[in-house]
Design a protein around this nucleic acid. Structure first.
Lengths: 348, 348
DNA sequence: CGTCATATTGTTATCGATAACATGACTTGC
DNA sequence: GCAAGTCATGTTATCGATAACAATATGACG
């Protein structure tokens, strides 16, 4: 920067201003500086700027997996929402592992992000403790934690599963199974399973038709295999709720291979509003979590909080901002499709 | 750090060593320092470390989209491959837009990454110029550029499309169509289309059955619509090659809705070895690009280059490393499945 | 014509770490 | 017993920017 300053015949402070157009700077001077910089092949150094100004421009984000349409959409929403700001995402994926998350968040915090976004409301105690004392806004996504660390954006995964149960029962099915990954790791999946069981029990229905399908996240093939086991064990099952749309599609394929008519002999519901559930034949009933909107809402919240209170805007802090609520409930919707259409066998 | 030094009764330099265990340091001293740090709630600052040591620990990565299974797998491979190193990914997505890529790469370079990974071998001239003078290893993925900027890992998308043509022709089809997104944006898709046309022409076959399906990347629904248009326009089409597996699944769904038997009346091939092409009924023939391996290979190359030559290890530089070749060709494989099975109509 | 606001640029002291070299305490080997 | 080598730690000068304040020029205004 001093080289550029010399080349342009100004002080380095002026060059600094020219690159941020922060305070007022003469237009011509600025142009001259930029020309000089181009001539010298100068490239601004954000690392130094971050150290000096204590604003790195990073927003740290953790998600369980990149290779998941829902989370990818959330990241897109975040990224798009921050596109025109000075903020940039610093993304890490935990592999659905709490301890890995703790390690990653620790590492991310050494980069001095200005805000941190994480997926889910469950963390190791140590991790919670870091985040509480990190001194930056923390946003938990895709969940409605009982006690958010700072703020949260999402919905109750459990009650959405209940919504699917209601829909299936309304359509005339009572012998309903659930296919999901192993618990513990995928907390959202676990919540959905819990919600399924609670809703079944509340109606006096058998809530025991649960089939695990390997380590979360489960693949289409694993789900197909799980469906076959479930159907073997409880042959009179009329419907299955799957932890995700890919899992639901796996179950659908298993039906197609086995000659089981969907929805006449078997209804299938998924979660996540993946493309596939809309395009496949028959199309699959699902819940649209509005993944993208979760991300863009988070981006808006971050911008709001950082601008309102200059980074001190934690919900529990002094400078509580416009969005004062600690939790933002995202609207979701049940998307009814062919796979849970009228029960053929029940028809006259 | 000085606070920790005072608390532990050592100099700040010793604290610095304790946190990197770089050079030798007494075990007890180190333990004492870490205790002091915990007591004070000290958190290492990578920003300052990066400025001072001129090693940020960042590897910048650009991909067209996060919400794409193939690229997500590549990122996973990269991430896993760097997990045990001091390196961390700094990820950005270009939205399949060259100018956006240029902007992003410029921005990424201000973070002083130690290496940069980008997708595809096509860039704006300005972008190429930055990268050539950036002074760090640059790796282009998912392509075999005629003139790599520095190094590249991938394969010729065009010749893989040719492979599919060969397979279809061998199975008895000659009236073959191609479904892909609009050109220009998705260069890999364009290469596949070009390869398709070249292979058809080389066999004296009609290479004009091309159907665009909107802006790349195309969705399943767009591909389904494109298939219908193609089938309308060239009703005697026997097979379609789709730019990706999701597109192929869209075409398959269109067939199922229209009562066109696959593979008897229509063969379908995709690209990318997505889960869905394996699980759907009928399963879809595809090409496995080994997305994950592309990423892990890149990670290995980065580690190798950075360790061998301390960051100066560009392929064209002085410290050419173990992997001296500028291009690493990734093995791919044709995965033949039901959707291109024996031509039913051709049977006696 | 003097005062004051405004616009523009400069000076100095950091931000929180590390590189490079220096230092002192111990070993080791002949 | 002493030179040379190790090990563990300390000192000093940066890395490349920015914050906070200072300084100068310019023009408006009564």
């Amino acid at each position: 920067m001093m080289d550029v300053a010399r080349e342009a015949g100004v002080s380095s402070m002026t060059v600094s201003r020219a690159f941020r157009d922060a305070s007022t700077i003469n237009k011509e001077t600025r142009a001259r500086i930029h020309q000089a910089a181009d001539r010298l092949g100068y490239l601004y150094d954000s690392t130094a700027a971050g150290l000096s100004s204590r604003k790195t421009g990073f927003v740290a984000v953790t998600i369980p997996s990149i290779d998941n349409h829902n989370f990818a959409e959330t990241v897109q929403g975040l990224s798009d929402g921050l596109k025109d700001s000075r903020l940039q995402l610093l993304l890490a994926h935990t592999g659905y592992d709490w301890h890995n998350e703790e390690r990653l968040i620790r590492q991310l915090l050494t980069r001095r992000p200005e805000a941190l976004v994480t997926t889910g409301g469950a963390h190791t105690p140590a991790c919670r403790s870091f985040l509480e004392t990190a001194g930056i806004p923390v946003i938990e996504l895709w969940d409605r934690p009982d006690q958010p660390i700072d703020r949260s954006i999402g919905f109750s995964n459990a009650s959405l599963a209940g919504l699917l149960v209601t829909h299936l029962v309304d359509s005339g099915r009572t012998r309903i199974g659930f296919i999901g990954g192993d618990t513990q790791r995928d907390t959202r999946g676990t919540d959905r399973r819990r919600g399924f069981m609670a809703a079944m029990v509340a109606r006096g229905l058998d809530a025991s038709r649960l089939e695990g399908a390997g380590t979360a996240p489960i693949t289409m093939a694993e789900s197909a295999a799980a469906f076959r086991r479930l159907k073997d064990r409880w042959p009179d099952t009329e419907a299955v709720i799957c932890v995700s749309d890919p899992a639901a599609f796996g179950a659908l394929s298993a039906c197609q291979s086995a000659g089981i008519a969907v929805p006449d002999a078997m209804a299938i519901a998924g979660f996540g509003a993946y493309d596939i559930s809309e395009v496949c034949v028959p199309s699959i009933t699902t819940i649209d979590p509005r993944s993208y909107d979760i991300g863009s809402t988070a981006a808006g919240l971050i911008l709001d909080v950082l601008s309102t209170s200059d980074g001190l805007g934690r919900a529990d802090g002094v400078g509580a901002s416009l969005s004062a609520e600690r939790h933002i409930e995202m609207p979701t919707s049940l998307v009814v499709r062919q796979s849970t259409g009228p029960n053929g066998k029940a028809r006259p």
